[in-house]
């Protein structure tokens, strides 16, 4: 199934890579630079799943997830957190913020796709 994915990351390289991985998998990628930008994009599109980095300027991933979750129409969109840490602490925090799952950077595109399917079909 082709998913529409919103990927939020402040690193251009990471956005490029996500874009590449997602479009290679036949998904439609929408990219945003930080949480605020992500919310702006969400106003225009309704993705099947969101991938977000945590540490970003202006609005970080936690703030972004929080904002997404607090909006009724977005509250059920699966959100995967991109993290370089595999630390349980961070995952717990991500989950506490309302994330659905996480992807550890650097990601293997195949596993990214798998993870996406795990949360969004």
């Amino acid at each position: 199934m082709s998913l529409e994915v919103l990927a939020v990351d402040d690193s251009r390289t990471m956005r490029d890579m996500l874009n590449l991985a997602l479009s290679s998998a036949g998904f439609t990628a929408h990219l945003a630079e930080d949480g605020i930008h992500g919310l702006e994009v969400l106003d225009d599109i309704e993705p099947d799943v969101i991938i977000t980095d945590i540490n970003m300027p202006r609005m970080d991933g936690f703030g972004f997830i929080d904002a997404v979750r607090s909006e009724d129409k977005w509250s059920r969109i699966p959100i995967l957190v991109l993290t370089t840490e595999s630390a349980d602490e961070l995952k717990a925090k991500a989950r506490a913020a309302g994330a659905t799952g996480w992807i550890v950077k650097p990601f293997d595109p195949a596993k990214l796709v798998k993870a996406l399917q795990m949360v969004a079909g």
């Binding site: 990471m14 970003m56 370089t84 650097p106 990601f107």
Partner: peptide, 19 residues
């Protein structure tokens, strides 16, 4: 401090992707 952290963090993130 976050800017500093983030810069290092992002470099690490990308670097990981390229091995």
């Amino acid at each position: 401090i976050n800017i500093v952290f983030r810069a290092v963090h992002s470099i690490k993130g990308g670097a990981g992707a390229f091995g």
